[in-house]
Design a protein around this nucleic acid. Structure first.
Length: 695
DNA sequence: GAGCACTGC
């Protein structure tokens, strides 16, 4: 039973849209550009004079251009060539991702004919390849530029700042735009370029011209360089898009000439299910048919496995890459001719009334569906199969709600306060966060002693704002002084900042890996288990082989080492002692509670937990060492919560007009057993009544 | 009872 598709006569307008990261993406090697004639052939070149004129005349220039038009690599060079980097000034270009910042900087250094780190450089966390005196074009992550505002609030080093990929609406991009609008009032000489790959960028224009002269901002559209992508829709909704995706891939293989296939699903579980379906179908693949090579792609894979999707398929075979949203912008695979789009994505949302964030599956947006389709037209015309009817497409929101509207604002608000932005109601947000999110964040900051009675930052608040880590974790670092456990808390802080370090594959190797992981188990819970893993990693010389034999990701563990040493510098600067509690797990856990006061939960005899805030039903995540065990005290704190829905049918019904039958499940990750008194000890004052664990 | 979208400092 295969899904029938309906194909509109013409390609969907704008379906060849793509995002600018594509060429700048991950891992793909790019051909060297060294000749100026190659630069002149880029579509952006004929707009050069107009762009320079606008940047000179207007404070803010909004540039709309698709992938391959060259704005990210060329615009900073045009500015450089026309003197914007004279007198020691720097031209900055921000990127949402580290790989983009590094790879674009490398290409531009090559075009300019300089060594990377000299006239052209980049700055990302843990890597600064720039020269304080010589660098004129600086690529950086938007998070780094945001951090720089805490040190130099007017960003005086820069003459032009280009915010690239602004349409992605990351929280740092949004915060930077707000701050830069403010900076422009004090430094009218500073020029701003806001670059977006989507056509509906006029809200950026409205944003910069409101409360300003109309001459403050202008908008320019550039031509793209993409091939057309035909879009086909499912005739009817499908109850099982994972199976439908596998069937569609199979049918493409039977009907079409060679060309690789890219499937967008929401997560690892679906990807593995889809691989199984495909394996079943491939048994009946006719002998003469093109061979199918299914490959998974998601962030939880090892680097080696991720790299496999870039290898060319053998002659007479076709790659089917089954991916999460990582292939939408972060990773670019050349040679994709067919895209199969489930129409769903997992996003993180935040519930201000419980203070908990959750991972939920939702329908994508028009912008995102267009972006996914564009992945089929990078090297030749392509086809995108959408596994939902065109009537469902018409109900999709234009774009995803910006991150700032669905994230905890505690840490960003602390940082804005530190910048001297005290009246958050007057701050000109591109999109304002929900009022309740702001109120809860302020309430939490007051309760945590970061903001005083007078509404100003306390000494600890000022210092926590500087730390490159979530405010609640930073609070643990500060409180470690009282519990004599600076060493251990520092490690735990670093370990919770990374992704899950364990690599547990499917099947039999997975069971073995699971046994390896159990070796690190601490009775008290996951935080101490992570501490054990880190200490063992260091004890064994931070070796990659050791990681391999203990089911740990070397890449992730190495990142924990970097983060730890960075945080250590902050602790030393703030005079926080790096004492070890010498195995005193109780002090350590009491210190943990200081950061997790909002994340308390109590155990119930049915094996679930109830959150202290909001009485929400919580389940233990299967990766937790407390998954198979009742906490003796009956109380725990947890690092984070995620919400998942039981079946795809539910996603489908609830998201595309049906009902929600309540099969959502909240899981808590990284859990540690505590005593309930410790919650009160750490300022759980606004909690009306303390419930005893039920026996 | 059984499994984690993606960034970023």
């Amino acid at each position: 039973m295969s899904l029938k598709f309906w194909k509109p006569g013409t390609a969907e307008p704008g379906s060849n849209l793509d995002r600018a990261t594509a060429n700048e993406g991950n891992i793909v090697s790019s051909s060297p550009y060294s000749l100026s004639s190659q630069r002149e052939r880029l579509p952006i070149y004929k707009h050069r004079e107009k762009l320079l004129y606008c940047i000179e005349k207007y404070g803010v220039t909004i540039v709309v251009g698709q992938t391959g038009c060259g704005k990210t690599t060329q615009l900073p060079q045009y500015l450089f060539e026309s003197g914007w980097a004279s007198e020691g000034n720097i031209i900055a270009c921000t990127q949402p991702r580290r790989v983009a910042a590094t790879s674009v900087a490398g290409r531009v250094a090559n075009e300019v004919g300089t060594i990377l780190g000299d006239e052209v450089g980049y700055t990302i966390r843990f890597e600064d390849l720039s020269d304080k005196n010589r660098t004129r074009i600086l690529y950086m992550t938007d998070g780094m530029l945001f951090r720089e505002t805490l040190v130099d609030p007017l960003l005086t080093r820069y003459s032009v700042i280009m915010i690239d990929e602004a349409h992605e609406r990351n929280i740092y991009t949004d915060l930077l735009l707000g701050i830069l609008k403010k900076i422009r009032r004090k430094r009218p000489g500073l020029r701003l370029i806001v670059s977006s790959a989507t056509l509906d960028a006029s809200y950026f224009l409205d944003y910069f011209t409101s409360n300003n002269s109309p001459d403050e901002a202008t908008i320019i559209s550039l031509e793209g360089r993409m091939y057309p992508v035909d879009v086909a829709y499912a005739e009817k909704p499908t109850p099982d898009y994972v199976r439908a995706a596998a069937e569609t891939a199979y049918n493409i293989n039977m009907q079409h000439i060679p060309g690789d296939v890219l499937i967008f699903l929401t997560g690892r579980e679906e990807i593995e299910q889809c691989l199984e379906y495909l394996a079943e179908m491939l048994v009946s693949l006719p002998r003469m048919a093109t061979r199918l090579v299914p490959l998974a792609l998601h962030a939880g894979l090892t680097t080696d496995d991720q790299l496999r999707v870039f290898e060319n398929a053998e002659k007479g075979s076709r790659k089917v890459i089954i991916s999460t949203n990582i292939a939408e912008a972060s990773v670019t695979i050349e040679g994709i001719k067919f895209v199969i789009d489930s129409g769903f994505v997992k996003i993180c949302t935040f519930n201000p009334s419980t203070g908990l964030s959750a991972l939920v599956t939702v329908p994508t947006s028009v912008q995102s569906a267009t972006q996914r389709a564009g992945r089929a037209g990078r090297t030749a015309p392509g086809i995108c199969y959408r596994l939902y009817p065109s009537s469902a497409f018409d109900t999709l929101p234009r774009s995803m709600p910006p991150e700032i509207t669905r994230t905890d604002m505690t840490t960003p608000i602390l940082q804005l306060k530190s910048l001297g932005i005290d009246d958050l109601m007057k701050f000109e947000w591109v999109t304002a966060p929900p009022a309740e999110t702001v109120l809860r964040a302020l309430e939490g900051l007051v309760a945590n002693g970061m903001i005083g009675e007078d509404g100003r930052l306390t000494v600890m608040g000022e210092q926590v704002a500087e730390c490159p880590i979530e405010a609640n974790i930073a609070r643990m670092l500060f409180k470690s002084k009282e519990y004599n456990c600076g060493e251990e808390i520092l490690t735990i802080a670093a370990m919770t900042a990374i992704q899950d370090p364990w690599v547990i594959p499917d099947g039999a190797p997975g069971a073995l890996a699971e046994l390896e992981r159990r070796k690190f188990t601490a009775e008290e819970g996951d935080h101490l288990t992570l501490l054990n893993a880190y200490n063992a990693f260091v004890k064994h010389g931070k070796s990659s082989n050791w990681c391999k034999s203990h089911a740990l990701s070397f890449r992730t563990m190495s990142r924990a080492v970097s983060i730890r040493s960075q945080l250590k510098k902050y602790m030393q600067r703030f005079g926080l002692p790096l004492n070890s509690c010498q195995g005193d797990a109780q002090s350590l856990r009491r210190c943990l509670v200081s950061g997790y006061v909002r994340n308390g939960a109590r155990w119930l005899p049915d094996g679930t937990y109830r959150s202290v805030r909001g009485e929400q039903i919580l389940h233990t995540h299967p990766t937790s060492v407390l998954f198979t065990r009742k906490p003796k005290s009956g109380w725990v704190v947890f690092h984070e919560m995620e919400e998942t829905k039981k079946t795809q049918c539910v996603f489908f019904c609830s998201c595309f007009g049906g009902m929600d039958d309540g099969l959502t499940k909240c899981r808590i990750r990284i859990i540690t057993e505590i005593e309930p008194d410790w919650l009160v000890e750490h300022g759980m004052v606004y909690q009306d009544k303390r419930k005893k664990p039920v026996e």
